[in-house]
Design a protein around this nucleic acid. Structure first.
Length: 418
DNA sequence: TCTGGGGTCCTAGGACCC
DNA sequence: TCTGGGGTCCTAGGACCC
């Protein structure tokens, strides 16, 4: 059996933990630059505010209904996520952190009443963190996802825990769930399925395997088997990322090479820092620039470039010049840039990799970066940075930012004093 | 005026090998 | 008239996730 634990309205719930006056109030959390809605409390969902709604289009809705609006506070959410995951890891030796607010547990070998075990999770996470969760338990990962939907949709009946442990329960849940809400069925697949009169998850499980394989590739077939109760999607335990990106929409148009170069320098530096944090080196650096895709009066420009590095490295000092070189290739004058990003990929282990015969990363950089990361981590992030980086790393609009209650010492002290 | 960010996996087709 | 067969590796782009 597998359990899928999902935090309810996670970002909104995080804001509530430290500000109980928000309970029962509609809350939305906005993306970077306060651009669009990325999380909503149940009350906000009831007002008809959709996921991804541009904030400026809904300002009057926010005002008339007294919606509490927050800028995304990823320091807070990341820290709360760590706490929740820590608690859940005590319920099984095999856990897969699937996203910031979701976690699979393998319940293999755990001979307890599954429903009661799920209730224990809900109670403990609530008591220790204040975050409400829903738990779905079933013989496969995809069915655990389905069970979680049931638990979340009917909290009064299920007490936020639902177990699928018989074929009757499996079929009942699948006949209830619209096929487009199945984990792994996106817009394109839903379109194909609708064209074949498949509306519910259950009807999808009845389709011939050959059709599913042809129309939805091996991914679709694995999913179908999983929903039939034949476990075909495995747990994934690898904790290291295979690619690391930093991309941002700018708070205004950037028009000169030097302005964009500063952003690329900063993004590369942030990526490199994350790369060192997981003890990897990268072999490929790619970047892109983009103009405003919503502006119909101007021609849209998007260009990316991928650089194969002559050696494996995680040194900011070595990566930035490559990134700037790449930017020179894709930058066009007289355009108004609105977005850019850097991605590092093709990683190897920093402690065990094949060096190149002719060129290699400067070995002194490894120690230098270690010291730099330590100082930036202990004192003030970006206390030590490249001269090509602006002092203000994130030039974002964040007009509704809550305090970093758990990770910023000044904010922590303020909470304690309050 | 204003529209996010960060990931993973799979496949077709090209380039190459003998 | 007729032009082989069997592979591997890589990558861009698409589809999906939260």
């Amino acid at each position: 059996m597998y359990a899928l634990i999902d935090c309810n309205n996670f970002y909104a719930s995080c804001e509530r933990v430290f500000n109980p006056s928000l309970n029962a109030m509609p809350i939305v959390v906005l993306s970077n630059n306060d651009g669009c809605v990325i999380a909503r409390s149940n009350e906000a969902k009831k007002l008809g505010i959709p996921m991804g709604a541009p904030a400026f289009e809904y300002e009057s809705v926010f005002r008339t209904h007294g919606v509490k609006v927050f800028s995304a506070n990823f320091h807070l959410y990341g820290d709360m996520s760590r706490r929740v995951m820590n608690i859940l890891s005590n319920f099984s030796p095999a856990t897969e952190i699937y996203s910031i607010d979701e976690c699979f547990l393998s319940l293999h070998g755990i001979n307890k009443d599954h429903y009661k075990y799920g209730l224990e999770m809900v109670e403990k996470v609530m008591k220790w963190t204040g975050i409400p969760i829903s738990v779905g338990i079933a013989p496969t990962k995809a069915l655990a996802k389905v069970a979680n939907r049931v638990a979340k949709k009917f909290p009064e009946i299920t007490q936020s825990v639902h177990v699928i442990d018989s074929d009757e329960k499996r079929i009942k849940a699948l006949k209830w769930l619209p096929v487009e809400d199945v984990w792994g069925i996106g817009r394109q697949n839903a379109k194909k399925l609708y064209a074949n009169d498949v509306r519910k998850a259950y009807e999808f499980t009845l389709l011939p395997e050959s059709w599913v394989l042809k129309q939805m590739t091996i991914v679709g077939l694995r999913l179908q088997k999983d929903l039939k109760g034949i476990s075909s999607i495995d747990m994934e335990y690898e904790e290291k990322k295979k690619s690391i990106s930093t991309t941002r929409t700018f708070e205004r148009d950037y028009n000169t090479f030097d302005e964009v170069k500063e952003r690329i320098t900063t993004f590369t530096s942030l990526c490199a820092q994350k790369l060192r944090n997981q003890n990897s080196l990268c072999n490929v650096l790619s970047l892109f620039v983009e103009t405003n895709r919503f502006k119909e009066t101007e021609t849209y420009y998007y260009k990316s470039i991928q650089l194969k590095l002559p050696f494996s490295t995680s040194s900011t000092l070595e990566l930035v010049p490559f990134a700037v070189m790449g930017l020179k290739h894709i930058f066009r004058d007289h355009l108004h840039y609105k977005k850019a990003g850097v991605t590092l990929s093709h990683f190897v282990n920093a402690d065990c990799y094949q060096p190149s015969l002719f060129y290699n990363s400067n070995p002194k950089h490894r120690e230098l970066m270690k010291v730099m990361d330590k100082i930036n981590g202990t004192y003030k992030s970006n206390a030590i940075r490249l001269a090509g980086m602006d002092e203000k790393t994130f030039k974002m609009r964040q007009e509704h930012l809550s305090p970093a209650y758990t990770t910023n010492i000044n904010d922590v002290l303020r909470v304690l004093i309050d």
